[in-house]
Amino acid sequence: MTRVEHPPEFVTRADGVRLAYRYLRGKGPTIIFLPGYMSDMQGGKAQALAAWAADKGFAMLRLDYSGCGESEGAFENGTLDIWRDDVLAVIAQATVGPIILIGSSFGGWLMLLLAEALGDQVIGLVGIAAAPDFTDWDFDDADRATIAATGRIERPSDYGYDPMVITQGFWQSGQRNLRMTGKIGIDCPVRLIHGQCDPDVPWETSLKLAAALRSSDVQTIWVKDGDHRLSRDQDIALLIDTVTKLAC
């Protein structure tokens, strides 16, 4: 597959912050990739999907949340609500039709909020090591005390982000947007891909998410030797096959 890159387009928020996106126009529903926490639209999975979409003529939208990648703003000002609204602003400017949302890790939490906001416009979801509610299950009492006392917590990262910063504002927004506390009112087809050797997001999280979703068309796909990134050639091939079946 040939990768064709072009300069980003921008949408300007009411506060003047410019949000970067790349919109490949084509057939079928628009495939929208939602990066993970502290990631951006130039990551390996996003690039591979864009190359596949270009080769097959599918529409695809990539974007950077404020404070990430090529978008303006400060990362530490970001929250779930703000980044959800960033994505909605880009979707509105790009004037896309039916949508398939692909959420990687943190992006898998964001895709739930977006699917609720966009309703029937979303015709499918694909989670890649989806991490909804991680402010609830990935923080112990000591972490919460540190966030309350200092306004932030820093963690080492194996993914090139050193340190990984989580602010009190983001943590509080996470607690306001917990989704696996009851039934999640989403009815479209959902596919959840998760590596069973994921050291960051337990694969059981996808099992719990599948049970919480109201949709009757939910499939969990386990990669027995898969890690958190799921960026190997065989992982990318699985992702593309999964998206193809939803898009066609």
Rank of each mutant, 00 (worst) to 15 (best):
L49G: 11
P7Q: 08
L24E: 15
G69R: 04
E70V: 07
A51K: 11
G69W: 09
E72V: 01
I91N: 01
A46H: 05
H6P: 03
Q42S: 13
C68I: 02
F33K: 00
I31S: 09
L49R: 03
W52P: 10
V90P: 15
A53D: 14
Y65T: 03
E9N: 14
R13N: 07
W52C: 06
V90Q: 11
S71A: 11
R84A: 06
R84G: 02
P35F: 03
Q93W: 07
K56C: 10
I32Y: 14
C68H: 06
G57I: 14
E70P: 10
A89E: 15
I31W: 13
L19T: 03
G103N: 02
A94Y: 10
K56S: 07
K56V: 07
G28R: 09
C68S: 09
I102A: 07
P98K: 14
G16Q: 10
N77F: 14
H6S: 13
G107L: 08
S39Y: 04
F58W: 15
T79V: 14
P8A: 11
G78F: 00
T12G: 08
S71G: 09
R62T: 10
Y23S: 01
I99Q: 13
R22Q: 02
A89R: 00
A51Q: 06
M60F: 07
R62F: 05
A51H: 12
K27F: 04
A51F: 08
M38K: 14
G107Y: 06
L49I: 10
T95C: 08
P29H: 12
T30R: 03
G69V: 08
Y23P: 05
S104R: 10
V87N: 11
A59V: 01
M41Y: 06
G78V: 00
S105M: 03
Q42E: 14
G43P: 05
G107R: 00
G107T: 02
R25S: 14
A74V: 13
T30K: 11
I99T: 04
